[in-house]
């Protein structure tokens, strides 16, 4: 799994590449924890290159959202494939996260 970060209009865009599963989700958790500790408050997670996400990945996202909320921050998820979206839908997490089509829309909305 590869994680790259870039800043667009005050949003920290985190692009994840590969599969988010039991083995790789701790790595993602570490990246997020660093961001939260640096007091980054607006995080956009780019799913365009994510092939699969399992429950541990979802749980990591939920944990980060909780921690961001405490810092008055917010998490946006963008560019999900239909397959990834359906994983969010079965657990009804699509209602919990702010899901947008792409980064531009996040900038417009936020």
């Amino acid at each position: 799994m590869n994680i790259s970060q870039s800043e667009i209009n005050g949003f920290m865009v985190v692009s994840i590449e590969g599969e988010i599963d039991l083995n790789s989700s701790p790595q993602m958790r570490k990246a997020f924890t660093d961001l939260v500790e640096r007091k980054v408050s607006k995080i956009v997670v780019d799913f365009s290159k994510v092939a699969y996400i399992d429950s541990s990945g979802l749980a990591t996202l939920i944990e980060m959202m909780q921690r961001l909320k405490k810092n008055q921050g917010h998490m946006y998820l963008v560019q999900m494939s239909a397959k990834i979206k359906s994983i969010f839908e079965i657990t009804r997490l699509d209602k919990l996260f702010s899901i947008f089509a792409n980064v531009d829309e996040v900038v417009k909305a936020g």
């Binding site: 989700s25 701790p26 749980a59 939920i62």
Partner: peptide, 10 residues
């Protein structure tokens, strides 16, 4: 080797 907090959420 997941964190207990993550396991709890799962």
């Amino acid at each position: 080797k997941l964190d207990p907090h993550i396991i709890n959420i799962i």
